[in-house]
């Protein structure tokens, strides 16, 4: 290398500019990595929900306390038989009582109440792939057995959820873009400050025959050296925050529903953030120094 490594080290220590650079890079990498990993996590959760719910319908048979009518278990049995007979349905699964209890638990915290309340029976059905069967088709088929049967399609609320996640993805992309721009501006300002205080050294280096590229490259190397550890710390903190987020969301999705290749892509994309941040910071340093040097003789 043309210029000795320690030539500009004191410039970066001057007025703690190097420390400022380290903190800025660390914060920017944290924000960008967390934005990306949080968005990836939400997308993954939505994906698992979408995949799990897209082909499913839920049949709800209200409980009846009328002793003159058909008993609830018979009504359920009849409905299940009709559903099994429908060619467009792949699976029919009445939800066991304990699963219904678990679903209702957030709204009815006292288990004793569930025994006295008229809790409906739920039947989970899965349509065959490419089936055009709608909730209304199923309801029409079951109406003769259970007049007040309800059939829920999950498409509507999944669509709302997908829209929400799409919006969050855009916001995350905007946050990442904003952190990138902020990083470029911060590094440029630091380089401006260093050049301003070290103008005499820059002039001397020019007089001694240094090229603009020599000097700018030296700034690139220093910035890269300071950015790496800062970037790594920011990345690890963001990963810890994401792990915390996953922990809080553990009841809402099962990460094992995603294939390993999907996790690999998400991990690689997230791991690219600190690497790209270091590259951006280093190139921003070189570019801004080159611009400044061109204004000097």
């Amino acid at each position: 290398m043309a210029i000795p490594t320690k030539l500009f080290a004191p410039c970066f220590r001057h007025q703690k500019l190097g420390l400022f650079l380290i903190i800025m890079v660390g914060i920017m990498v944290y924000v960008a990595t967390f934005a990306m990993s949080a968005e990836a996590t939400l997308s993954a959760i939505t994906f698992t929900w979408d995949r799990g719910m897209h082909s499913r319908l839920t049949v709800e048979i209200p409980a009846t306390d009328d002793e003159s009518s058909t008993p609830q278990t018979d009504r359920v049995q009849q409905v299940v038989s009709v559903l099994h007979a429908m060619p467009q349905i792949a699976t029919v699964r009445p939800l066991p009582d304990d699963e219904v209890t678990r679903l209702l638990k957030p709204w009815i915290s006292q288990p004793e109440l569930l025994k006295v309340l008229p809790v409906p029976t739920l039947i989970d059905i899965e349509r065959k792939p490419d089936s055009l069967l709608t909730a209304e088709d199923v309801r029409q088929q079951l109406k003769s057995i259970v007049s007040d049967v309800r059939v829920d399609d999950h498409t509507s609320w999944l669509s709302d959820l997908n829209n929400l996640v799409d919006g969050l993805t855009l916001i995350a992309a905007f946050v990442i873009l904003l952190t990138g721009i902020t990083l470029i501006i911060a590094v440029s300002l630091i380089c401006h400050a260093i050049i301003a205080t070290e103008q005499e050294t820059m002039s001397l280096l020019h007089v001694l025959g240094a090229t603009d590229d020599d000097i700018a490259h030296h700034f690139l190397i220093h910035t890269r050296r300071l950015s790496w550890p800062a970037s790594l710390v920011g990345f690890l903190l963001a990963m810890a925050s994401t792990a915390l987020l996953l922990y809080f969301l553990r009841h809402f999705a099962d990460p094992s529903m995603l294939e390993w290749s999907h996790w690999m892509v998400l991990g690689a994309m997230t791991f690219l953030v600190p690497i790209i941040a270091v590259i951006i910071a280093s190139l921003a340093a070189k570019t801004s120094v080159l611009k400044l040097l061109h204004t000097m003789p």
Partner: peptide
Amino acid sequence: FRLIPHLTALENAALPLRLAG
């Protein structure tokens, strides 16, 4: 003189040679 304060006499004197590679 314009010597660079944090470089030794040898490093200062050798600077043009370093720049010339």
